[in-house]
Design a protein around this nucleic acid. Sequence first.
DNA 1: TCTTGACCTTCCATCTGATGGAACCTCTAT
DNA 2: ATAGAGGTTCCATCAGATGGAAGGTCAAGA
Lengths: 129, 129
Amino acid sequence: MNIGEVSKRSGLPAKTIRYYEDIGLIQPHRSDNGYRAFAESDLHKLAFLGRARALGFSIEDCRNLLTLYEDRSRASADVKQIAKTHLTRIDQKLAELQEMRATLAGLVSACAGDNRPDCPILADLSSHD
Amino acid sequence: MNIGEVSKRSGLPAKTIRYYEDIGLIQPHRSDNGYRAFAESDLHKLAFLGRARALGFSIEDCRNLLTLYEDRSRASADVKQIAKTHLTRIDQKLAELQEMRATLAGLVSACAGDNRPDCPILADLSSHD
DNA sequence: TCTTGACCTTCCATCTGATGGAACCTCTAT
DNA sequence: ATAGAGGTTCCATCAGATGGAAGGTCAAGA
């Protein structure tokens, strides 16, 4: 399978697939012409990567998950730990964003948004000293 | 004022302050010894930047906001537009994260997290083909 | 006066996670 | 033979800093 087909079937851009090979996440074989020759298992891993990345797992998380995925004797606790840690990070990020949103929404609704120069948004950003 | 004091008073690391000078957000004067000599107005701008960045505004947003901030004749509508656009981005990001969180939380709670190799998390990540 | 240590300088490398583009090779169909 | 659709490598770039090396400066104490 050439990179184009793998790209279509995995949903990942060819650039990204080459990048993932570069950083050692996959090791496709090479044909005589120098083209990457992907096996079904490579495609499978790439699809796995695509979904894990879409869930916000970092590349290093993905590397660990792939290792665990290929380790038939791993404990599910190891995987769960990675996922739980990630869930905590997501919750933190959510809390931050929600606070940001609240502050910003308040400022936006306080701002007349007309042609006058008075602007509560700038006033707020500059007033805390 | 040297960079150390500005760092303390603005809450920004010295590295970051140098970086902000580098990309043209501030233009502190220089003392005879080559040290950066910050005016109160520089400190003010840096604090402004710190707060805007904390609200998730991009550096380019900040550049625009600073320009508007210094333009006594700007319309508040210009500022509001930047803030509203940013608010929309935050809402998108929030929706994404919430979906991620829901999926991940479901997987985590489905996973026994014991010594057995069966793991719904990995099963899910690998099953969608 | 000398020295120590805190503080300052620049410059270059590194991080995450790709992505864009140039220059060039290969395969397939006409 | 040639066009064009693929493939290849390598190098640069994006955001937004941050780490570290090598070296200059300043103030205080022995």
